[in-house]
Structure formats: structure tokens, C-alpha cells
Simulated scan of single mutants.
Amino acid sequence: MYANFSESEQQFREEVRAFLRDNFDAELAARIDSHDGYKAATIEWQKKRYDKGWVAPGWPVEYGGCGWSDTQKYIFDNELAAVGAPDVPPFGLKMVGPVIYTFGNDEQKQRFLPGILSGDTWWCQGYSEPGAGSDLAGLQTRAERDGDDYIINGTKIWTTYAQYADWMFALVRTDNSGKPQQGISFVLIDMSSPGITVSPIISIDGEHHLNEVSFDNVRVPVANRIGEENQGWTYAKALLTHERTALSGIGYCKHTLSRIRSLAAAENNGGQPLLADSDFQARMADIEMELMALEFTELRVLAAVANGGAPGMESSLLKLKGTELQQAVQSLLYDVSGLYGAALPGEADLAALGHDYGYGARREYMFGRACTIYGGSNEVQKNIIAKFGLGL
């Protein structure tokens, strides 16, 4: 589709490469990947892109977007993946930001969008609850009106990076009288508010990504509600299409496949490099072909958005296939690691192979089992595709 870039596009690619050489290196990557330095290093990386004006490619120009063509977005994503540079955290820029500039009022846009762009304000998502995951309409966190405030009580769970967040965007129930999808409102909650408790959940990879967040008579100004009361389901659906598009993980898969190729070329398999094994080559080829097909699907979605549309059923396709490919890539990396996949941090075997080869391969494999569940389980995505794509 983009076999031959125009001269201006080639110049843009060189500009991106120069920016990455000057602003992203192994030291910054290591700090982003660390426990203690994650937030500070990630903010530093976001501010570098913000200062360049390259932090929100998908946003309209009037709200701080880049004004890039689909080809430029494609080039930028590929160059990020080529050097292993992470994207910025999605919760502000790819989730709540588009909801605010689409459905929020002018005061809310002026108040929240600048901090989302600069990285000065960090967000988390308050959707899932102990009794409402893929069936999100079953949420029970209650918001009762008290003058100019809502009083919120309930619990959110699986809340990624709530321990770092300054704000949460959340779905709360403001009316129980109608269908489950009715009576839900979309509110922005200051995480420093009295009555909020964040409890860590240690996931299967041994890391602290997730949290349970409880609300005990938490006061939230009605002015922090996005759009109309009881219409939050409409705004949530718009957000989920953006979230699911972001979950395709194409850049991650490309970068990990590059790592796998290098590792397999060095790994001994019966006196020959593992990369020379025909079965291994077939597995690599299958993943690469499916990844290419997924990438072109994402490009079509980007083109539709650029022409004033919104990601619809296609976002479910991207989420479904993208997360399956992420798991296939993680399984391949884990297989390449062999016995080193059983190593623990600090063990001698890791010194010769790199800190993320054995233990890191297992960690990615373990946590990757969740990617077909979060953001709406893949079973739910198949139902959406069947209904809206196939008319079943």
C-alpha cells in the first residue's frame, strides 16, 4: 500500500528517525521498563514528544493534534516500533481525551486537555467492577445527587496503574429504573478525593499493574460529568472503539518479532541456528503474514477516521486479531527462551543473555494471557462482529 513513499514522506521519515536518535535511548528505555522509575521516565518521554508537537497524532489539530496524513502516522508508528520506543500511556490521550473533546463542554476541554497532552495529568479507567467485567452494563457503583455534587459508593477492579493516576474517568449508575445500559453517567474523579482507597492486585507475572479502587461516600462535582446525565453508555461506547483500536499492538508485535529473529539466529538448535529450522521459520512466516493483514486493516480504519468517520466494528476486528497475534508472538519468544524461561531475576544465566530474555519472556507470556480479556473479551468482540459486520 505504501511501497513507495513520496519525497516529502521520506523526509518526514528521516525527521522521525533523527528525533528518536536524539530523544530516545537505551537508558530511557530501561527507566521506563523499571518499577521505580516508570512514571517519571514515561512523563519525560511524553514531554519530549509534546515539545515536538508529536504527542497526539489522532487528535484534531484544533485540540493539539499533529495534522498528519495516514501515511505519516504509519511511518511514525513503524519508526517507534523499529527502535522499541513505547507509545505514550493510552488512558489520557487515546481514551478519555477523545471523549472530552467530542462530548465535553468548553470549560472541561480547557481544564483537562492541556494536562493530558503534556503528561502532567495521569489518568486511569474506572469501568470494570467485581460483578461487571465484559458485561459492563451490569455495573453497580452508585452516584447519588446531592446538590452540586454526586456521592459515589462502590468498587472498581482491574484498574491499570491507578496507583499512579491523578484522575479517573469512570462509569457510575445514576438511575436504576430502565434497561441496564440506561441510567449510566460518565464522570471524572479526582483520585486525591477523600474516601478513595487504592488496593494493589499482583498479577500472574508478579508485577503490580492492576488495582482495586473503592469509593466510600466520595464527593464529585456534577460539573465533572461529561455530557448528559444517564447518557454515559453512549460516551463509553465511543471510548471503547478507540481503546480497542489501540489494543491491536502492531508496533509491539513488530518489535518483538525483530527481537525473536535476533535471538533465534544466536540460539543453538542441534548444531544449527534455531532460525534455520523449517518449523520455526513457518511459525514466524504465519505470524508475519497475519500481522501484515492486520496492519492494512488498521490503516483503513485510520483513513476512515481521517475522513471524519469513527472506528466502528473494525475496532473489534483489530482488538480480536491483534491480541491473538500478541499472544502468538509471546508464545514464540517464550519457546525461544527454552530453559532460560524458568530463570528468576538476578540469576547468573541472565547476565549472558540480557535481562529480559528468560525472565522477561516468561513475564510477557504470563501477563499476555490477559490481553484477550481486557478491553472487552474476544468472545464479546466476536459477537459484535457477527451482529454489526455480518448481520447475524
Results as ranks from 00 to 15, higher is better:
Ile260Leu: 03
Trp158Gly: 06
Lys48Val: 10
Tyr235His: 08
Gln231Pro: 00
Asp22His: 10
Asn105Gly: 07
Gly322Arg: 01
Ile287Ala: 02
Thr372Met: 06
Ile201Trp: 12
Gly92Ala: 13
Glu15Arg: 10
Phe280Cys: 06
Ala29Ile: 04
Ser118Pro: 12
Pro57Ile: 07
Lys73Trp: 04
Ala223Cys: 06
Ala264Met: 05
Ala223Tyr: 09
Gly97Pro: 05
Phe215Ala: 14
Pro89Glu: 13
Gln110Val: 02
Ala30Cys: 07
Leu275Trp: 09
Asp286Trp: 00
Glu15Val: 03
Gly360Glu: 05
Pro89Asp: 14
Gly232Phe: 06
Gly249Pro: 01
Ser248Asn: 09
Glu267Lys: 13
Gln125Tyr: 11
Lys319Asp: 08
Tyr161Glu: 15
Glu79Ser: 02
Ala361Leu: 07
Ser258Asp: 10
Gln327Ala: 02
Met313Ile: 12
Asp349Met: 08
Ala56His: 09
Ala328Lys: 13
Phe12Met: 00
Phe186Ala: 03
Ala282Lys: 05
Tyr63Phe: 11
Leu171Asp: 01
Val16Ala: 07
Val336Trp: 05
Gly338Asn: 11
Asp277Ser: 11
Glu144Arg: 13
Thr241His: 12
Ala56Ser: 11
Ser193Lys: 15
Phe5Pro: 00
Gly354Leu: 07
Ser258Met: 05
Leu325Met: 00
Lys319Asn: 08
Leu299Pro: 01
Asn217Gln: 15
Asn211Ser: 15
Leu294Thr: 02
Thr197Gly: 12
Trp167His: 14
Ile385Pro: 04
Ala303Cys: 03
Leu350Val: 00
Thr159Asn: 15
Pro114Lys: 10
Ser203Ile: 10
Pro180Trp: 09
Phe103Thr: 03
Glu79His: 00
Arg111Gln: 15
Lys382Arg: 11
Arg244Gln: 14
Pro180Leu: 10
Tyr127Ala: 14
Gln182Phe: 13
Ile385Gln: 06
Leu339Tyr: 04
Phe12Arg: 02
Lys387Gly: 00
Gly133Arg: 09
Ile196Met: 14
Arg259Glu: 11
Gly249Met: 10
Tyr74Glu: 05
His255Trp: 12
Tyr374Ala: 05
Leu80Pro: 00
Asn269Thr: 02
Asp216Ser: 15
Glu298Val: 01
Ala223Leu: 10
Arg369Gln: 14
Trp122Arg: 15
Glu207Gly: 07
Ala40Phe: 08
Gly64Pro: 04
Gly115Ala: 15
Gly67His: 01
Ile157Val: 14
Gly147His: 09
Asp36Phe: 08
Asn23Asp: 09
Lys52Asn: 02
Ala343Leu: 12
Leu350Met: 11
Glu144Ile: 14
Thr234Met: 02
